[in-house]
Simulated assay, not measured.
Amino acid sequence: MSTAAGPGASRPHLKTEMMKPATTTTSTTLWNTHNLSLRLCADVASAATAGALVAPVITAIDKAIIENAAGRQTLGRSLRDSLATFTLRPHHFLFSKPFALIFTLYGGTYITANILDTCASTVKGKPATTTTSGPAKFLATSSANLSLCLYKDSRFAKLFGAATSSPRAIPGPSYALFAVRDCLTVFASFNVPPLIAPLLPLSEGMQKHVSAASAAQFLAPAAVQLISTPLHLLGLDLYNRDGTLGAKDRLTRVRRDWLKSSFARMARIVPAFG
């Protein structure tokens, strides 16, 4: 008897396939948890190291700007005094309250940005080199930077502002101006560079020495100081010169110190956020 299968013959392999349960395809994202604890430790260590490296320069410049705005010392004289202290008595400079305030400010901001990048790369399953530049990063870094910077500014204004026997409280408008200033700086430092880097007209020869991303990371934070420095100076003036001074008088003082203070703040922002 022939065993050839005809059109109506039973086909066991088809029955087996029909009896198999249907499978559904689901897309799952694998979290990039490889060495996560070490990566988080590296985030903290690199942030603390960066904060310690930039803190001496920023401490001296912030002190100089505030003393110059208060009329206590010129910008150059204050910077020379800080340099002399750092050179001749480094322990006195590095263990001072102003240095601790600046180290806490930038170390805290860097830690926030680093950990956010690591968490984003972990959840999205992307390489650790992936960085974020969206609203989440702006909100997180702004919150950390703003809260720490407002505290630092209030302490610096009382330490180096207008000389009085009993420093008064920082007025609310000064805090508001400082807050807007910091939001501008954080936005220009963390969010703007990835957006403007493709637009920079760098020639192939220039890109051999510096990438568009690196150039944008230096240019954006520095350029925004031309806009944010007047806010900083006006906030200091509201603290230093209390009373019923007119807007014209205050704006005259701000305009007088605007350019040199802007360049000084560029010098502190480039190492801090560049």
Rank of each mutant, 00 (worst) to 15 (best):
A169P: 02
Y151F: 15
F138M: 08
L159P: 00
G134Y: 10
G134A: 14
P127L: 06
S174R: 02
A144R: 05
R155T: 12
P127K: 01
K137F: 09
A144N: 01
T164W: 06
S147E: 00
L159K: 09
P135R: 10
L150K: 03
S143V: 14
F178G: 00
L177A: 04
L146R: 01
N145G: 15
P167I: 06
K152F: 12
L159Y: 13
L159T: 09
Y175M: 07
A128L: 10
S147M: 13
S154V: 07
P173D: 02
G161W: 03
T132W: 08
S174G: 02
T164G: 03
T130E: 02
A169Y: 08
L150A: 00
S133P: 02
K137E: 04
G134P: 10
G172Q: 11
S147D: 01
N145F: 15
T164K: 10
L159W: 15
P173W: 10
P127Q: 00
S154F: 12
C149Y: 15
L146S: 11
K158D: 09
S166H: 13
C149D: 13
A140D: 00
K152G: 05
S165P: 01
S143K: 03
Y175H: 08
S142I: 00
S166I: 12
P173V: 11
Y151E: 01
F156S: 05
L159R: 12
D153G: 09
S154L: 05
A157H: 07
L177W: 02
A157P: 03
P171Q: 02
S154M: 14
A176T: 12
L159A: 14
A157S: 15
D153F: 15
T131M: 04
S166L: 12
G172H: 07
A169L: 12
P171F: 02
G125A: 05
P167F: 04
L148N: 05
N145R: 09
G134K: 09
P127E: 00
S174M: 05
T132E: 14
N145C: 15
N145V: 13
T131R: 13
G134E: 06
A128K: 06
T130L: 13
S166F: 12
P127Y: 00
T129C: 08
A163I: 10
F138Q: 04
A162N: 12
L146T: 14
L159N: 06
P135Y: 07
F160M: 06
A140Y: 07
F138A: 09
F156A: 04
I170G: 00
S133Q: 07
T131P: 06
L146N: 04
L177M: 07
F156I: 07
F160H: 01
A169D: 12
A169E: 11
K152C: 05
T132D: 08
S143C: 14
L139I: 14
G134N: 10
F138S: 04
L150Q: 03
A136C: 07
T164A: 06
T141L: 11
